[in-house]
Amino acid sequence: MVVEKIAVIALYTTIAMFVGILFMGVGRKIVARVHNRVGPPVYQGFIDIAKLLTKKTNISHGWIYDLALLFSMTGIMLTILFLPIGGVKLLSMEGDAFLVLYLLAIPALGFALGAGASGNPNAAIGVMRALVMMLSYELPFVITLIALMIYYDTSSIAQIVEMQHAKWAIMIPPFVLAAAVADMALQGMLMEAPFDIPTAPHEIASGPMAEFGGKHLGALMIYKAGTIVAYTTLFVDLFLGGGVVMHDGSVLAYLANFAVWFILIFLVFTLSLLINTSFPRFRIEQAFKFYWKYEALLAFISLIWVYLMVIS
């Protein structure tokens, strides 16, 4: 039983990471098609990571710099363990949405530490922007999350997914608003334009990553791939029923749920890419105002709406 569970967890995490790396290539392809270019092959992400990990020389700025590598990969894979993927609860019964929110902070803080230790001023500015972005998008996102928790009367993501079997959250009127808000928050989480402020390559030389190269950058790319899967899965789990379409425990159900989950996160990711390709970059204080003024207001309206629904 335990061995089985460990095998399933290992399988799903590996697949999730592969999907993430695949999505990086797919994303570049989609952006290229929007630009009317051919674009790289879809497996480009694998090649990039393989190249970075096989670099002949690697530099380090000390042990704190190496923490970025360890923390970013560890944290993001740990987060994926605590998210239901296609309705399969890996470890998600052992924690809840708050744990996921804070687990997502492990790679971010480790990455920030590594960037700080690299001593590059661009990296520090990038981290500052990333943290301010985090403060900005978390407010609307957290409010929508609380709306869901109050509506389903649980804070466990696995249970929220289970309760959406009959009806996905996005089919309930207040959560349409909430999902729209959360999708814009997702845009900030994935650092896609107009919120690609932290890593703006032409302003601050790719920000926190300025000093990373070789295996460190390879690990950070795996982390980036993991964030794509983690955040889109979080969105799908919260609003789109986690992609669960069949509820019996058969093998077919596993496969079908997995396929639907894959399609849904692909759609969410594509939407975010399309927004990315059509907008220029905000300045950091504009992004902050955007999230705390308009997004937070809309999120709060949906929260009050849900609250009134639950009270009555």
Binding site: V38, G39, P40, Q44, H202, A205
Partner: peptide, 10 residues
């Protein structure tokens, strides 16, 4: 980018 090439910042 067809060949996987791209500009990098640093």
């Amino acid at each position: 980018e067809r060949f996987g090439m791209g500009p990098m910042a640093t």
